[in-house]
Design a protein around this nucleic acid. Structure first.
Length: 486
DNA sequence: TGAAATGTTGGGGCG
DNA sequence: ACGCCCCAACATTTC
């Protein structure tokens, strides 16, 4: 049977994998030849050895390798996608561009512009649901309105298990041209020599199975302890599409079949985290403005303190609160941070330093290898108390108590804050209280090698309550309906 | 997916 | 024996 197109370009954004890839599979069905293409936006800097860039290179390399196994390959173009992608479509003579659908308004709008650019030379831009199991409009409350609270959303989501899309059949072969005008095969692109395969899609699938065979059994208990390997570590792969959410979901469901009661509970807790992810994606769909301001607009008026010195100390992990500093140093050195730690540092930035949560949101997006607009925004608004289903604004983390609770022996702190390596357990989360005679044996003199706390938590907490109370007061909506005046 | 402030209770020391 | 005080432990309220 004749195919619809001779060639289709598959824009591999957020889908850096060969298997269970919706647009890729559709393109193989619809065209004789597919051109899997990735656009390096800031190509001149791609050789830099930042953590994020190394990670992206590994994903791209492994994607190329896995595409080669099925007869295809990964192509690269460089520059602004809005210009380069349409140019590649036109120059390659492709009849269509396929990609996964995105959910943030700036990128959606850019997609619309790209679609209209393609239309001018007779090509179409088709987008596919892929990043989530259910998109925004698919799960609504009884009266057709979007859910704003997680728990009812999850209930509705879980009632739809039978509608979860299946894993796509294994893709055995995909035919690609050896060259496509205006693009470069990845292996010919300088900078990818010497990059090992196996650290993208391949590692993602391995991690998923290792997690399911072992770690998930204790996920419920261990996931909150940043010093242990209690989480799946799948987020960097999920965020970049190096693994499919369908594959993750169905692999977990299969494991659930044979799980004992305890393991089943852990699997359900993990699934719940995936539902949080979907929750924030649908929030972004229904309330696109959350990327630019607080969901609860009265909380846009909080008088945040713009203190660059404090912000720098937070970024560099030099706040004097060990759990905060360990977490920020983990982020800076690994491009990843444990979820419990994310909540702690976010609470510290907003409620101890009184810095706008959007500064933190932006810094996380710059640094995280699992940067995901929807989840990152949801998380920050949750901690700041500005979001849809947010933590109440007066819920403030005490960095010392959080440390003592979730890093009881200080293993996490010691790993990332070597200055504190020899501080005894008892003082590891409050080294400024070390007695003078203990400082020498601990090799820690507060204020020298390791900073004293840059703010007093107790004082900062009271200021936060004041700041939030102030904006909360001026909210009474002044509309008085007729007949209500006594 | 907190923590502090405040309230209550009950056991033991003590006059 | 009895009532009073103290205070730890726990519960509830508040931010």
């Amino acid at each position: 049977m004749a195919k619809d197109h001779k060639r289709i370009i598959v824009w591999m954004r957020r889908a850096l994998r060969a298997q269970d890839n919706t647009p890729l599979r559709a393109a193989v069905q619809d065209a004789d030849e597919v051109i899997p293409l990735f656009c390096l936006r800031d190509a001149p800097r791609y050789r830099e050895n930042t953590v994020r860039r190394q990670f992206l290179r590994a994903l791209l390399r492994d994607c190329d390798t896995n595409l080669r196994r099925i007869g295809s390959r990964l192509f690269i173009c460089a520059g602004d996608p809005e210009k380069e992608i349409p140019a590649a479509v036109r120059n390659s003579g492709a009849g269509a561009l396929y990609a996964v659908r995105v959910y943030d308004s700036p990128t959606i709008e850019r997609d619309v512009r790209i679609a209209s650019a393609l239309r001018k030379f007779g090509a179409e831009f088709v987008r596919f649901k892929d990043a989530v199991l259910f998109e925004g409009p698919e799960i609504l409350s009884q009266n057709g309105s979007p859910y704003r609270i997680f728990t009812p959303y999850r209930r509705a989501w879980l009632s739809r298990l039978s509608d979860v899309p299946p894993v796509l059949p294994h893709l055995r072969s995909a035919t690609s041209p050896t060259r496509a005008s205006g693009t470069h095969p990845l292996d010919r692109f300088a900078g990818f020599r010497g990059i090992d395969s196996g650290r993208g899609e391949t590692l993602a699938l391995k991690s998923l199975h290792a997690f399911i065979d072992d770690a998930v059994l204790n996920y419920k208990e261990k996931r909150d302890f940043p010093g242990t390997e209690g989480t799946s570590r799948l987020s960097p792969f999920l965020a970049n599409g190096a693994i499919s959410i369908r594959t993750v979901f169905w692999t977990l469901r299969a494991a659930r079949e044979t799980a004992d009661r305890n393991a089943m509970e852990s699997i359900d807790v993990f699934l719940s985290e995936l539902v949080w992810r979907e929750f924030y994606y649908q929030i972004l769909h229904h309330f696109p403005f959350v990327l630019f301001r607080a969901f609860r607009n009265e909380l846009d008026a909080v008088a945040w303190v713009d203190d660059p010195t404090h912000f720098t100390a937070w970024r560099n992990g030099r706040t004097g609160y060990p759990i905060v500093d360990a977490a920020m140093r983990q982020l800076n050195s690994e491009g990843w941070m444990h979820n419990r730690a994310r909540m702690i540092v976010a609470s510290f930035l907003t409620k101890d330093l009184h810095i706008n949560w959007q500064w933190g949101e932006k810094y996380f997006l710059e640094r995280l290898i699992d940067a995901d607009l929807a989840c990152n925004n949801g998380g920050w608004q949750w901690v700041a108390g500005t979001g849809t289903d947010a933590s109440p604004w007066f819920r403030i983390f005490n960095p010392v108590l959080q440390g003592e609770k979730f890093d009881p022996d200080g293993e996490y702190v010691r790993r990332y804050v070597p200055e504190l390596a020899h501080v005894p357990e008892r003082w590891i989360h409050k080294p400024w209280l070390l007695k003078r005679e203990k400082q020498r044996s601990s090799e820690c003199i507060p204020g020298t090698s390791y900073p004293r706390p840059i703010v007093d938590h107790n004082v900062a907490r009271r200021i936060t309550l004041q700041l939030y109370r102030t904006v909360r007061k001026r909210t009474p909506p002044a509309s008085i309906k007729a007949g209500e005046i006594s």
